[in-house]
């Protein structure tokens, strides 16, 4: 897709096309939003690549149609002006043209719908996960429970909420500079948490997603999808992360005053490291921890 886009850049005349394509190249390789970013990131899962490709196909179809339609309009506006002596024709009908511009869009739509359908079918299959994580949205934090790993309950669960640094800075008229909130070189203002969700790379992870109070939506752009977290309803989704890294996202469904302040951080690491991490998490937990009723451990309201 990148090479396709770069060869097209040379040919495309419109500045908007250039800007879009430039953003596309710019965004690739980074999973953090970048300053002046123009296009969707490519992400680190097959779902994210699929979303990106579906997006680019749709975008280019729109750009091509736009160039043709707006080009015809521009030509008409310069050519058929009264001030240039244009005399108006009086026809108002052309059956052949009308049939053509009804049928061709239908064909284009079929071409667009086909790959989208394939992707969706693939994405709907949440079977055979190695790890199942239950995600529960609260006003305004997330709980993660490692319900099942390689066929065994793990007993690991914790709450993940906005980091203290961002939280101090985001208070009204705090006087603190959001640019100063950093992890290493990354500006993580409002995109960092006290305790990230740790996931293994290279294995299928299934999420069961719900909420405790109002509707939230769990979204990490690099994983390629978002799913609503709805009280008393359980949705599921899956991911298979290709490369280790830190992937940041946010709640994507209005959930009250601190909707903008409940980020999501996924720390993806190779399976061996993940196994180690999981073992350390299991140590301090009492051996009789019951994963079925973890919500009792911490009050949902903060």
């Amino acid at each position: 897709m990148k090479s396709l886009a770069t060869t097209r850049i040379g040919r495309a005349a419109s500045a908007a096309v250039l800007a879009m394509a430039a953003g596309m190249v710019h965004a690739s390789g980074s999973t953090m939003p970048a300053r002046w970013q123009l296009n969707m990131g490519r992400g680190v899962t097959e779902s994210a690549h699929n979303a990106y490709h579906a997006h680019m196909i749709a975008l280019w179809v729109c750009v091509v149609i736009g160039v043709i339609v707006f080009g015809a309009m521009a030509y008409a506006m310069f050519k058929f002006r009264k001030s240039k002596g244009a005399v108006a024709a009086q026809w108002s009908h052309n059956t052949k043209a009308e049939v053509i511009w009804t049928v061709i869009p239908i064909l284009i739509l079929v071409v667009m719908a086909w790959p989208a359908t394939q992707i969706l079918i693939k994405q709907a299959d949440t079977s055979n996960p190695v790890l199942t994580v239950k995600v529960t949205g609260y006003q305004w934090k997330w709980r993660y429970e490692y319900v099942d790993y390689e066929g065994k309950p793990t007993g690991v669960n914790f709450v993940s909420k906005l980091d203290a640094d961002s939280d101090k800075t985001r208070q009204l008229k705090s006087g603190l500079d959001p640019h100063a909130v950093k992890v290493g070189e990354e500006s993580t203002y409002l995109l960092n948490v006290d305790k990230p969700l740790v996931l293994p790379t290279g294995v299928k992870v299934r999420f069961v997603i719900t909420a405790d109070d109002v509707i939230h939506a769990w979204w990490v752009p690099a994983l390629g999808w978002k799913t609503d977290a709805i009280p008393d309803i359980i949705n599921d989704a899956w991911t298979l992360i290709e490369q280790p890294g830190t992937y940041r996202g946010q709640c994507a469904e209005l959930c009250g005053q601190d909707h903008g302040f409940m980020p999501i951080v996924v720390e993806a690491m190779p399976k061996a490291l993940f196994d180690q991490w999981l073992a350390t998490q299991q140590q301090p937990a009492a051996p009789n921890a019951t994963p079925a009723a973890p919500a009792v451990a911490a009050a949902p309201q903060g």
Binding site: A76, M77, S83
Partner: peptide, 10 residues
């Protein structure tokens, strides 16, 4: 667009 085509526009 077709309405504009071959019109006499102001």
């Amino acid at each position: 667009v077709s309405t504009m085509w071959k019109g006499s526009m102001t």
